[in-house]
Design a protein around this nucleic acid. Structure first.
Lengths: 204, 204
DNA sequence: AGAATAAAAGTGAACGTTCGTTCATTTTTA
DNA sequence: TAAAAATGAACGAACGTTCACTTTTATTCT
């Protein structure tokens, strides 16, 4: 038989097809609204076959969260962002993360589904993986008291991530509304500016 | 018969009971996971009776969005917030909104359900109501070029709202995770500070 | 190597449940 | 006394999962 080590086994290819189909459908319709039949059809196998690879529907979602979540691509970009000053670092990290996220416009929905349908049940496993990588970077940043206002590393992480979340959440919320028409084009740049400098002018 | 004009008619009381029950259940379980039977039971009437008041399940959700959404209470607090300086205004508005939101911890879920299950379909009606009230206030704010950096009124609104969203979204995401244990107590104050002054120290 | 064979994966009908909605009927309201 | 509201059984559809069965894959033995 063919033993090309670069080729995925048939088993693995089936798993990937199931996860890919489920990922797309969850993004399009949400978790509850997506049926196992739809997943099977898009993955190109029969309904019952799914259960040879996953114990059930929620396990597919968990698998997606664990090894298909966009943070896998984004995290390295942030952690490895360069910059002589913290401002440079934040701007580079934000820009690179945004570029990657721009390719995957539905990334936030995974988080919303997680919150709405599972009350954040699966997040802790992500955190366990993210934190050891990200915390040292932001600890070094927070220590630069000359450049940064006094904000602890944990809140620095949270607020940095929150900037992306809030940008995309408000984008999804206002899409198609009157506010969307009034919105400037490069709004994310302003979000980064506000994160860095605030809305107030310096008082000096 | 009793014609006390302050009393709700029986019809109205039934509608309120249905909306209240549905609101609670949607918050607890999400829209799709909540059944009409659960709504009927908690509202204290029979299954079929709901359809004498609402055409279907989604119309209940729409009614909740329209006249039970927390922004009804919060919007006036923000619009009527006082403050000699923009900073005072923002801090007062943020504090009062947060107090109100603290009483209604599930407020954000309504938005998430809206995004996850309806792709933001019902937001435009909210915007049509909010914008005329809120835009003038933020236009006046944005015009104070001495105090505020150059940010248009529309982005000023969006980023101000986004501050709350990002705070609560990250709170829901990290709850129960390792990051939550490391989080300082009064994190929202820091979010407001970052919104006002940014994370960077002034360069002067 | 090639045949035998046990394990894994694929199939789609069937199962039991639950869903949103409808309906004929009764009770309450105006 | 006519309209509105309440009732819960019934309907058809869809759901996640299981099942008996066939096909494919991987391993063992000659």
């Amino acid at each position: 038989m063919d033993t090309d080590p670069t080729a995925l086994t048939k088993k693995e290819r089936a798993r990937q097809a199931i996860e890919q189909a489920a990922y797309e459908l969850f993004m399009e319709q949400g978790f509850t609204a997506t049926s196992m039949r739809q997943i099977a059809e898009r993955a190109g196998l029969a309904l019952g076959g799914i259960y040879n690879h996953y114990a059930g529907k929620e396990e597919i979602f968990r698998a997606i969260i664990l090894d298909r979540h966009p943070y896998k691509q984004i995290l390295p970009l942030v952690v490895n962002a360069k910059g002589k000053t913290p401002e440079e670092f934040f701007r580079n990290a934000a820009r690179e993360a945004l570029n990657e996220l721009g390719q995957r416009p539905d990334f936030l929905k995974l988080m919303f589904i997680e919150v709405v349908e599972f009350n954040g049940r699966h997040i802790s496993v992500i955190m366990r993986e993210i934190l050891p990588q990200v915390l040292p970077v932001f600890e070094q940043l927070a220590a630069r008291r000359k450049s940064l206002r006094q904000i602890g590393p944990v809140l620095l992480i949270r607020s940095f991530i929150a900037m992306f979340f809030s940008y995309y959440l408000t984008e999804m919320l206002i899409q198609g509304s009157a506010l969307a028409k009034l919105m400037p084009k490069n709004s994310f740049d302003t979000f980064v500016d506000i994160y860095l400098h605030g809305v107030l002018k310096e008082t000096s």
